[in-house]
Design a protein around this nucleic acid. Structure first.
Lengths: 197, 197
DNA sequence: GTCTATAAATGGATAGAC
DNA sequence: GTCTATCCATTTATAGAC
């Protein structure tokens, strides 16, 4: 920490402003339909300021992506932590995912629906990211404990969370009239029937 | 039909060539990373020819999208047709989806993973398209027949097909080492446990 | 119906003042 | 650290010959 602690640097605020504006625009129109100009205007900053904080447009997207993935990872870890057993943890994850989808749809839109590989060519696929790994590990542990019957781990994990993720897609696409959160138990229980021993 | 029947018009061949090249490039790099130049070169045709057959780049993508959706719709209808009962039909759909994913990954990449709304702003979300409607109808019918227990229809449909679709995502992202088709029965049976009465 | 050449616009990124 | 002005490359789309 070489920065002065006395007061929040102006630069950090601007950086955050740019990131939140970028999320707004990327999730609404997509990465390629959003120009630096658009971000500049919407954030009320200058081109130079953006390029001072980010090497280029791709680096901006990468910073945003990583920040949101981390946010999602923390949210899932926190949701899991107070619960024990595969079902309780899986249900808690689904509830947390549904909550995030309703409360921060732009975050989930960007994380779930965007095709990051098209503009972050070196990024590994989202299913290899930490939050998704955490979800698989819950199922793996359940299989070791005998709560989940013996089956292919990938199949077990997609069975448990695939339906929930599809429901989130529907909600984000606006085809689901009612609230996602109403369905947490129905979704979690139906999926659990598929894999419990 | 005002065209002469005697021989296949040259124009149709070129049109098909452009469409198949576009699918190749769109699925590999994405719509926005593919220029008309790229298509022109890869297809070995001229700019003028492309614009003779398609009003603009968006119209090209729309034609491709609709053609592939139709292809998928026909494939699903054919897979369903010889079977009776909700489970048999659902399993047949999953088998057909897995087969398509393995045999025509570019088609499925473009249909499933691309964010069409970013470049086809007037298109309705993919979950409202015919093939996805057909999948939901199979489940709806199963609920009427009593094969599927009473529950929210959206939840039932996503429970039945959500896991399979996630597995396809994994396969398309290249994180699934082995063959998708090996898992048809395991995936279908696990999902079925979730919704059967 | 297909070609080449080119127009017109946009967008990412830089330079240099303050 | 932030601003304005501008460069340069790329891209969509058109014009007009064949």
């Amino acid at each position: 920490m070489t920065k002065p602690i006395t007061h929040r640097a102006k630069g950090d605020d601007l950086r955050e402003k740019v990131l939140s504006t970028a999320l707004e625009l990327f999730s609404a129109r997509g990465y390629f339909n959003t120009s630096i100009q658009d971000i500049r205007q919407a954030a009320g900053v200058s081109t130079g300021a953006i390029y001072h904080h980010f090497e280029n447009k791709e680096a901006l997207a990468k910073a945003l992506y990583e920040s949101l993935l981390l946010q999602m990872d923390v949210a899932i870890a926190c949701a899991c932590q107070p619960h024990h057993g595969c079902y309780a943890q899986s249900r808690a994850i689904i509830e947390q995912l549904f909550t995030l989808t309703e409360e921060q749809p732009k975050l989930m839109q960007f994380i779930l629906l965007a095709q990051h590989r098209e503009y972050l060519p070196n990024e590994s696929p989202i299913c290899s990211s930490k939050p998704f790994k955490a979800m698989r590990q819950v199922i793996e542990q359940g299989m070791i404990n005998g709560e989940v019957r013996q089956m292919d781990v990938w199949v077990a994990a997609t069975t448990m969370f695939g339906g929930a993720l599809r429901m989130m897609n529907l909600a984000l696409d606006g085809v689901l009239g009612h609230s996602l959160l109403k369905h947490v138990d129905e979704v979690a229980e139906a999926a659990w029937r598929g894999i419990k021993s």
